[in-house]
């Protein structure tokens, strides 16, 4: 059998196995995305067909954990889409300022680049001492990485440019300490971030928050799952709370689009109605 002939049925049976044995549910992910990732893994690990893949997933935990990394989305940047962060500073911060304490949920935080970006903004706005950022992901590997707050030095040039484009006026290098290879984010940024394992697909509401950021995660889900996760977000936001999605995402596929007003249409910033 050729990789080319891998059928939807075989893929869904593999995803079923992963769910039953490990509890991770990819069954409602975008099929084309899953197919691509699985084929990549087969090529990299020299696996010839899906049944070989299936037995490896069930019997080899380290392989299964590798596949989990493959299937999870870890691409991120600090101040990714600077225009979005600019709008956040201009349109969302004034709303957050009115609260005595501020809870932010960063759903699908990956290695934490955007959670640290948020912490920087809150610090610059003088709000960080009354802020808690819940940064969650289902991928324990990236969460541990995020908690350490260590990033490659090579990325800092791009992140600094993003930061400046987002309207940041401080010296970006003041937010971390660096050696020749890596940087480590300041303790003062880490102190109010709570890193937690949470799976958007299988877990439920865990806090009532003022702001949710979930950018470029929902694009990997099918429409039904998007709808389900949007319901989870809606239930987690206070009235008047803010929802920030990725620049190509929206509320189109949900029954909830009338329950929000648009704070910034282009940057996909929505406000839950009272």
């Amino acid at each position: 059998m050729n990789i080319k002939d891998t059928s939807e049925l075989e893929i869904s049976s593999l995803l079923e196995d992963v769910y039953r044995k490990y509890g991770y549910d990819f069954r409602q992910y975008s099929e084309a995305h899953i197919m691509r990732r699985i084929k990549n893994r087969m090529t990299l690990s020299g696996i010839e067909d899906i049944s070989q893949m299936q037995s490896k997933v069930l019997n080899d935990e380290s392989f299964a954990s590798q596949l989990l990394q493959d299937l999870s989305i870890t691409v991120t940047e600090m101040f990714r889409d600077p225009e979005f962060y600019k709008s956040l500073r201009e349109n969302v911060i004034p709303i957050l300022k009115t609260y005595p304490f501020i809870k932010i949920w960063h759903a699908g935080c990956s290695t934490g680049a955007e959670a640290y970006s948020m912490a920087i903004i809150m610090q610059e706005e003088g709000l960080y001492d009354r802020t808690t950022i819940y940064a969650t992901d289902f991928n324990q590997h990236v969460l541990s990485h995020a908690k350490e707050g260590i990033f490659s030095n090579k990325l800092m040039k791009e992140y600094t440019a993003n930061y400046q484009l987002s309207g940041g006026n401080e010296s970006f290098s003041g937010y971390y300490t660096s050696d020749s290879d890596n940087v480590i984010m300041n303790q003062s940024l880490k102190k109010n971030i709570v890193w937690a394992n949470h799976n958007l697909v299988t877990d439920s509401v865990f806090a009532e928050v003022h702001l949710i950021l979930c950018r470029n995660v929902l694009i990997y889900f099918d429409i039904n799952l998007q709808n389900k996760v949007q319901k989870l977000f809606y239930d987690s936001l206070i009235n008047g709370g803010i929802l920030c999605l990725g620049s190509k995402e929206g509320l189109r596929f949900t029954d909830l689009d009338k329950e929000y007003s648009e704070l910034d249409k282009k940057q996909k910033i929505f406000k839950k109605k009272y």
Partner: peptide, 13 residues
């Protein structure tokens, strides 16, 4: 990317 049911998905991979 194109799904089997002929709809688009986007990805930041």
């Amino acid at each position: 990317i194109i799904e089997k049911n002929k709809i688009f998905s986007l990805s930041i991979d």
